[in-house]
Simulated assay, not measured.
Amino acid sequence: YLEYQPLIRPPSSVIGFEALLRWRHPEIGIIPPSVFIPIAEADGLMDEIGRWVLEQACRQALTWPSSLTVAVNLSPAQFLSGSLTDTVAQIIDEVGIRADRIELEITETVLLEKTIDNIDTLNTLNVL
């Protein structure tokens, strides 16, 4: 499920929300992302999970005032999959949200790998 953390611009204006993926196990309770995300990445599930998170977050954002943004974290595996830009474009079209209301957050490790593919992906996402 997703939880939403407010994004605040000082002194105290809410400008949007960050979508945070959570997993509530029926017997164990809440399992932290630091535990389940690496497992999902190792099992090759991050594209599917990441698509679900982005789509659900965009659908939720449509219920908010249009001035609010939604931020979604991307895993390195998702960013490097090669299908990220197509996935983002499809979700924008399917959901009907303006691209400028979406913030995609990537880890520093992705930025440190300045490969042609990474730069192309960043440039394409910027155009959306």
Rank of each mutant, 00 (worst) to 15 (best):
E3C: 07
Y4V: 11
P6S: 07
L7T: 04
L7Q: 15
R9M: 11
P11G: 09
S12Y: 07
I15H: 01
E18L: 07
R22K: 13
W23C: 11
H25S: 07
I28T: 13
I28H: 14
I31M: 10
P32A: 05
S34L: 10
S34W: 01
V35P: 07
V35Q: 15
V35M: 12
P38N: 08
I39H: 02
E41V: 06
D43Q: 14
M46G: 04
D47C: 08
I49C: 02
R51V: 05
R51P: 02
V53N: 00
L54W: 05
A57Y: 00
A57V: 03
C58K: 05
R59N: 13
L62M: 12
L62K: 12
L62S: 02
T63Y: 00
T69Q: 14
V70N: 08
V70G: 06
A71W: 09
V72Y: 03
S75N: 01
Q78N: 04
Q78I: 09
Q78M: 08
Q78G: 00
S81R: 06
G82L: 09
G82S: 11
G82E: 14
L84F: 03
T85Y: 07
D86A: 13
I92F: 00
E94G: 02
A99H: 08
A99E: 06
D100G: 05
I102F: 00
E103Y: 06
L104F: 04
T107Q: 12
V110C: 07
V110M: 09
L111S: 03
L111I: 12
E113G: 10
E113R: 14
K114V: 08
D117A: 15
N118W: 12
N118C: 13
I119E: 14
D120H: 13
T121V: 12
L125I: 11
